[in-house]
Design a protein around this nucleic acid. Structure first.
Length: 296
RNA sequence: GCAGGGAUAGUGAAGCGGUCAAACACGGGUGACUGUAAAUCAUCUGGCUCAGCCUUCGGGGGUUCGAAUCCCUCUCCCUGCA
């Protein structure tokens, strides 16, 4: 009955769903440590706009994989996966419970399904391919005799990846064993209000200042500067957009993100969805059951 | 009161006799997604018993084979003159 693979609790959910608070709660109660599966909180210095867990929260429960990426270099799901695996092993080795929380579906799935990423492309190649138009990329893929079945030929990035990989396709494994997947089902009707409150809180917490400083430090082309809550300020700083408009754009973009996150997680049929209202109680119940069945 | 301009789908805004259920933008829905993923991309968005049918372009009435597009009139809004 003993399982060789470490137990893992996953808490997924759209932005502003309350998953971070829930994860904190679960971790505290079960002696867990959090691994943040978030493509934006990995960056150093991007704090307010990413709603990064506070110092105080990090004191309550150890958080892993925050502030590990250099904004100038960018980051990738493959790098995240490596560190997440290592973090899970480390936490389990200390006899604690690893809890993977986040809203970046790709990052989470890379761990859950042990995605086999293909080698990173040389920077020069990507740069070169990015210059090409969609039609040129399609032509190039065709000329190189690459199999394009299943590839979204209208999406430049997908074709670029295909060419970079020289036609090879990545693979994945079945769902990881010994894993409990929970999702927060936040009321859609209240999402808008929650997002607005969250953005307003960021504004009050000094988002403008943070963005101004980061933009000065890294420039608008740095990867994380393209994120929601950051790039919207560019026009504002240039004097072409009011603060209110900026705020509204951030809200709208966040809502769009939430939708994409929902779509991503929806297709994972193994997730147990917990209604946000009584998520804490249900989560405790689910984790308790999970751990009982797991240990011996 | 007189002269002129305007009223178009959730919003903004094209159209100015047929090819208009009506461009485009935004907003909204749905979906894809493996080294950029808070990214990138697709798709739907008047109604229905949905390869067809029905009701729309401020209201009403005309002209015409045919009108969102022309004429008359009513209502409301803006501008100039009083």
């Amino acid at each position: 009955m003993h399982q060789s693979i470490a137990p893992l609790v996953v808490i997924a959910g759209e932005t502003a769903s309350g998953k971070s608070a829930l994860a904190l709660d679960v971790a505290e109660r079960f002696g867990g440590e959090l691994i943040c599966a978030d493509s934006w909180t990995v960056y150093k210095g991007f704090d307010v706009g990413t709603a990064k867990p506070s110092i105080e929260e990090r004191r309550r429960v150890p958080h892993h994989l925050l502030d590990i990426a250099d904004p100038e270099k960018g980051y990738s799901a493959a790098e995240f996966q490596k560190r997440a695996f290592a973090a899970i092993e480390g936490i389990a080795a200390r006899g604690r419970l690893p809890v993977l929380v986040g809203g970046t579906g790709l990052y989470i799935d890379s761990v859950l399904f042990n995605y086999q990423f293909l080698p990173a492309p040389p920077a020069w190649l990507r740069g070169q391919l990015s210059e090409l138009s969609l039609e040129e990329l399609q032509q190039k893929a065709h000329d190189e005799g690459l199999d394009t079945t299943g590839i979204d030929l209208r999406n430049k990035r997908r074709i670029i990846r295909l060419i970079e990989n020289n036609g090879l396709r990545p693979t994945k494994h079945p769902l990881r064993d010994n894993t409990l997947m929970l999702g927060i089902q936040a009321g859609q009707d209240q999402l808008h209000g929650r997002v607005e409150r969250r953005v307003d809180a960021m504004l009050a917490a000094g988002l403008e200042l943070e963005v101004r400083s980061l933009a000065g430090q890294y420039g608008w082309d740095a990867e994380p500067m393209k994120g929601i809550g950051y790039h919207e300020w560019r026009r504002y700083f240039e004097g072409n957009q009011s603060r209110i408009q900026t705020r509204d754009r951030i809200v709208a973009a966040t809502l769009g993100l939430a939708k994409r996150q929902r779509t991503w997680f929806k297709r994972n049929k193994s997730i147990q969805w917990l209604p946000a209202v009584d998520a804490p109680e249900l989560a405790v119940l689910a984790v308790t059951t999970f751990l009982e069945n797991d240990v011996h």
